[in-house]
């Protein structure tokens, strides 16, 4: 099934064997991304340890859904996203996109097809847009890369079309990023990612830098565009209220691993993993009458350079037993569609 919009430009069909009803759009298998830390000496440098940013992520995303990925700073969310859209190579493990292993050897053309259909919107609406380029050129750039043969007029009209979809005007095309507010810049970033009709969009904290009144505008916009363009989203955030609002399913990440993965309702009402329990209880509720029974965790998140043996949460977990520091719990299905990596889940 080639994407019909660009049929005349994109002729190869990589995904003929993919069955969207039975297979997920994205499947991450034991994904690892380690960053080597090396020691420099006069003659050579040697790797002394690794930052285990992503350390065995198991995850899938179904067509048309929004998977929320939540976790505290440094747990590996952005790195997972960057590997998933092939901006970086994994250290180990694989990424399947519509049934195709995206890191297997392939031709330039095949790689372009994959990269067009996997787009990312970046966290910071201030630094992610080239300040020296007009909005028109920023949004046109993906067309230049993926469809060099497309006529300039067509590119331009497609840019204007997507600008209108994200709620900006024609004349905005001729302006520069600094002339826009944070919310408008985020709209431009979204327009750039969606212009070339991707299948999957990875949204890396798309609203974290925005004021709440503007955040609501962007969340609604994303919701509308997803329906209209039939998109699959991975939505990264550290704010659980935002995650709950946007997601069909949620994955909770901690120290490079997925702790819990379940439909949104179950995650909040039938919370299984102790880490998720503590995350939920930590959120200050905007209602003075709600008094939380809060579970206060001891200490900080350990360093990903030397993660604790066994379950990564064991040094802070109030339920930890001896086995927790000896063996790594696997992400098991504890009830239909509800996965949890813990020896003693809450049920």
């Amino acid at each position: 099934m080639a994407s019909s919009v660009f049929e005349e430009y994109e002729t190869i069909d990589l995904f003929a064997s993919w069955d969207s009803k039975k297979q997920p759009v994205i499947q991450l298998n034991n994904l690892k991304k380690w960053f080597p830390v090396s020691q420099q000496s006069l003659l050579f440098s040697k790797v002394i340890s690794n930052i285990k940013a992503v350390d065995g992520v198991q995850l899938f995303i179904n067509k048309g859904e929004t998977l929320g990925l939540v976790g505290e700073s440094g747990c590996g969310k952005s790195t997972t996203a960057r590997v998933t859209v092939k901006l970086e190579e994994p250290t180990e493990g694989s990424v399947y996109f519509k049934g195709v292993d995206i890191f297997q050897p392939m031709t330039k053309e095949e790689e372009l097809v994959i990269k067009r259909q996997l787009q990312m919107v970046f966290q910071d609406p201030y630094s992610s847009l080239n300040p020296r380029k007009m909005v028109l050129d920023i949004i046109k750039e993906p067309f230049d890369i993926h469809f060099p043969d497309m006529l300039y007029e067509e590119k331009e009209s497609r840019v204007l079309e997507i600008l209108a979809k994200v709620g900006l005007e024609d004349y905005h095309a001729l302006r520069y990023p600094h002339e826009f507010s944070g919310g408008q810049r985020q709209r431009i970033g979204i327009a750039r990612a969606l212009a070339i009709h991707p299948e999957v969009v990875l949204l890396d904290e798309p609203v974290s830098a925005l004021d709440v009144s503007v955040q609501a505008q962007i969340l609604n916009l994303l919701h509308d565009l997803q329906k209209e363009l039939n998109l699959t989203f991975m939505f990264i955030a550290h704010d659980l209220s935002v995650i709950k609002h946007v997601s069909d399913r949620v994955a909770v990440m901690y120290l490079g691993k997925i702790m819990e993965l379940s439909p949104t309702g179950d995650l909040f009402r039938k919370t299984a993993h102790p880490y998720t329990v503590s995350l939920l209880s930590a959120i200050p509720r905007p209602d003075p009458r709600i008094k939380m029974d809060r579970i206060l965790l001891e200490g900080d998140v350990p360093s990903p350079i030397d993660p604790p043996p066994g379950c990564p949460f064991n040094p802070r977990c109030w339920k930890a037993q001896e086995i927790c520091s000896q063996k790594s719990p696997t992400l098991d299905e504890i009830r239909p569609n509800h996965y949890c990596a813990c020896f003693f889940p809450e049920i």
């Binding site: 505290e72 550290h238 659980l240 503590s278 209880s281 930590a282 200050p284 809060r294 965790l297 998140v301």
Partner: peptide, 8 residues
């Protein structure tokens, strides 16, 4: 701060 640290 992260939410669990914010709580502390």
């Amino acid at each position: 701060l992260d939410v669990t640290i914010q709580a502390q």
